[in-house]
Write a protein that binds this DNA or RNA. Structure first.
Lengths: 221, 221
DNA sequence: CGGTAAGACTACTGGCGAGTAGGTTAGGCG
DNA sequence: CGCCTAACCTACTCGCCAGTAGTCTTACCG
């Protein structure tokens, strides 16, 4: 799980600033994800990063700045992973399906990132919540747009934007929480978990208990 | 929101232990919910409670014990509120609907409790997470049972228990996250938010975008 | 109208962790 | 080869906060 920074015994090899900053950020994400913002100490982060504390301050500023930087970096990585996985010219259900797969794929391969983003950042108040709300807002807006278009393509009177937005919030929330659950019950592959959520939100319990399931249009079965 | 403990100027009136403990717990929930576990100080809690710090320690033990006690008390209150709202002899969708209404009703009237339970407790590791996992587990089990019965009552080959459990987890998660969203967007009454989630999980987006909605059997329209 | 124990307080310690002052090496460039 | 600067370090300060020692006070019981 942790990249093993060979335990510091003496002075660290000299490195260009850019490389060190990456090392430090990686260490910070690791430590923050394991201990949480408050319990994480700058001493421990510097140790994991393989350098001394003043370097930390010289490069990334205060503890709060460091944390905010982590959040920004990880949330960008995640948004990008999802955006890459979705093709805009597909029908709504397929877009949703691709998005979910990309999301669970990312979480599965970046558990530390997810811990920092979801569990830690959202429980500290202050500027961090804003950072997070931003990412979350982008995701919600994306889903809401999907829903509105999807309703437009049918001959149905469109529900209010507000309604679409809160449904989108529920879906995003369901995804977040299912991801948390998955981390505690990691027996199954990402695709299976994604498929479950897809069925839940697209078909609903009403259909599921009646035996109707959703499946990707290209497959049969 | 805060019960106004008239600002301590002198010595507090003498009170029986039981009453003081309640006051202290109320204060603790309030402070923990506003500041989080780490940022909350025992000094502040004692001040809000209207007593001095040694009393806090005399009655509720260490900070961690106090926090754990808060979680237990609030989670019991919540489980009870939901259990009271659901009647076991109703059809599955009605049971689900009652449960959701009770849940959002509770959150709306006990925002501090919810903050402590969901946001704070889940982000501290250690014994707290276990406490929480217990409550969450009870909720998930309840929903899972509902789903399984509901499938049984149709003529459908039952899906695996594992599948039902993860769907239940997704639903519980959706509820939690929608509750969070609601706290940040408190414009609407609890019933409306509950109805949204009910529609999402029972009908699914697939039906919703086609204009089909779920409504309680007793009403029309 | 004492005596006493539970209720309450003031005022401290001890440790941890954020942030810093000031000194030490190593690589690069003339 | 020497010097200069960026990278790096050791070793502190200082404030905050969990937890405690020791004292006072008031309600109640006889």
């Amino acid at each position: 799980m942790h990249a093993d920074q060979p335990v510091r015994n003496g002075r660290a090899k000299r490195l260009p600033r850019e490389v060190r900053e990456r090392q430090i950020m990686d260490a910070a994400v690791d430590v923050f994800s394991r201990l949480g913002f408050h319990a994480a100490s700058m001493d421990e982060i510097s140790e994991v990063a393989g350098i001394s504390k003043p370097m930390l301050y010289a490069y990334l500023g205060s503890k709060e700045e460091l944390f905010a930087t982590c959040i920004r970096r990880e949330s960008n990585r995640m948004i990008e992973a999802i955006a890459t996985g979705v093709e805009a010219d597909q029908p709504p259900d397929v877009q949703l399906w691709s998005g979910l797969r990309a999301f669970f794929g990312f979480v599965g391969e970046n558990r530390a990132s997810w811990q920092v983003l979801h569990r830690q950042a959202s429980s500290q108040g202050g500027p961090f919540a804003a950072e997070l709300a931003d990412m979350r807002g982008r995701a919600i807006a994306l889903v809401a747009t999907l829903l509105v278009h999807s309703a437009d393509s049918q001959d149905v009177p469109r529900a209010g934007d507000k309604e679409a937005e809160s449904l989108a919030a529920a879906l995003v929330g369901a995804g977040e929480s299912l991801a948390d659950w998955w981390l505690d019950n990691p027996a199954e592959p990402a695709g299976v978990v994604a498929a479950r959520l897809m069925n839940l939100v697209w078909m609903g319990f009403g259909d599921l208990v009646a035996g109707n399931v959703w499946h990707p249009p290209s497959r049969r079965s």
